[in-house]
Amino acid sequence: MDDSARLAEIIAAHAGEEGALLPILHDVRAAFGCIARAAQADIAQALNLSRAEVHGVIGFYHDFTETPDPRPLVELCRAEACQARGVEALVAAAERAAGARVRIGKVWCLGLCSVGPNARIGDDVHARLDEARLVALVAGA
C-alpha cells in the first residue's frame, strides 16, 4: 500500500469521530514516524480544518514532528522524583553511550516515581536504573 492510500485509510478509520485530529496524528506518526506537510494538508481537508490549524496543533505537542528522526529513542525521566533518586548523574554516561546512533529524549515523569531513575523505550519501561543498566539499555536500543 502506498503512503497516500495508507494515510487515507487512517483518516477513514476515524471518520465520524468528533475532535479526531489528535487520534489521527497519533496514527500517522505511528505509521510514518512524523506528520509531513503533505499529510497535514490531507488531514486538514478531511477534517474541514485549515492547514494552519493542523500545523499549529502539531507544533504544540511534543509527541508530533513534521520531519522524521529514524534513530531509536530512549526517553529518560528527568522530573523531580527521578532527580531525587539521582538521574542527573546518569545523563552524561547515557549520552556518551548514545553517540549519534541513539536519541536520548527527556520526559517529565513516567509514573514510576518510587523506583526511579526510569526510562522508556517504546512501550517498554525500565526502573531502578543505575549507570551500568542505563548504558546497557542505550546500547541495546
Binding site: 522530573a79 522524583a81 515523569c109 509514573g111 514510576l112 516515581c113 518510587s114
Partner: peptide, 9 residues
C-alpha cells in the same frame, strides 16, 4: 497525570 511523584491514576 503529569505531576512527578504521582502514580495513583
Amino acid at each position: 497525570e503529569g505531576d512527578s511523584g504521582t502514580f495513583a491514576d
